[in-house]
């Protein structure tokens, strides 16, 4: 149920994001989903890739500071209120969302939401109970 996500610490330096993505490109690692959290002085690049362990190795070799975290990916209908429905479930269960990012599937019918909750297991449990479709890692990589 859990999905591995790669977080990369990025200092505020010209070309640093490109260097991270270039390192992945050279290792032929395709990115399934990506998000950047930033402040004026630094940022964190978050990635979902088919082979997270490999990506971590490649980035660390390039002197990046990397951390693997667990996140959850859920599928929601690509229509108004799709995401709101998921968030209501978590809110009702009193579970805080640290961050999330979303992308639309190629077919255009569904959207995929990557979620990081304070307590991953509790998050999964609440979503499951509410009947929300949690994607397996393989399903996300195949998108």
């Amino acid at each position: 149920m859990k999905l591995k996500q790669i977080s990369v610490f990025l200092e505020n330096r010209k070309g640093r994001l490109w260097e991270a993505l270039d390192a992945l490109a050279n290792a032929k690692i395709n990115i399934r989903a990506l998000s950047i959290a930033d402040t004026s002085e630094f940022g964190i690049l978050r990635l979902i890739v088919p082979d997270p362990d490999m990506a971590k190795k490649v980035l660390e070799k390039g002197n990046f500071t990397v951390k693997e975290n667990n996140v959850v990916a859920v599928e929601v209908a690509d229509k108004p209120g799709g995401l709101a429905e998921v968030l209501k479930v978590l809110s009702d269960a009193d579970i805080n969302v640290e961050y999330l990012y979303a992308f639309v599937e190629k077919s255009g019918e569904k959207a995929v939401v990557v979620l990081r909750t304070e307590n991953t297991d509790a998050g999964i449990k609440a979503l499951k109970t509410a009947g929300i479709a949690i994607l397996l890692a393989e399903q996300v990589y195949a998108l």
């Binding site: 996500q5 610490f9 402040t39 964190i44 500071t65 990397v66 951390k67 640290e98 961050y99």
Partner: peptide
């Protein structure tokens, strides 16, 4: 420079350190 062990992917923790 931040200590490598400090980075847990959580931006809040970095902001707190700052």
């Amino acid at each position: 420079e931040i200590a490598k062990e400090l980075f847990d992917g959580n931006i809040e923790h970095l902001l707190q350190l700052q």
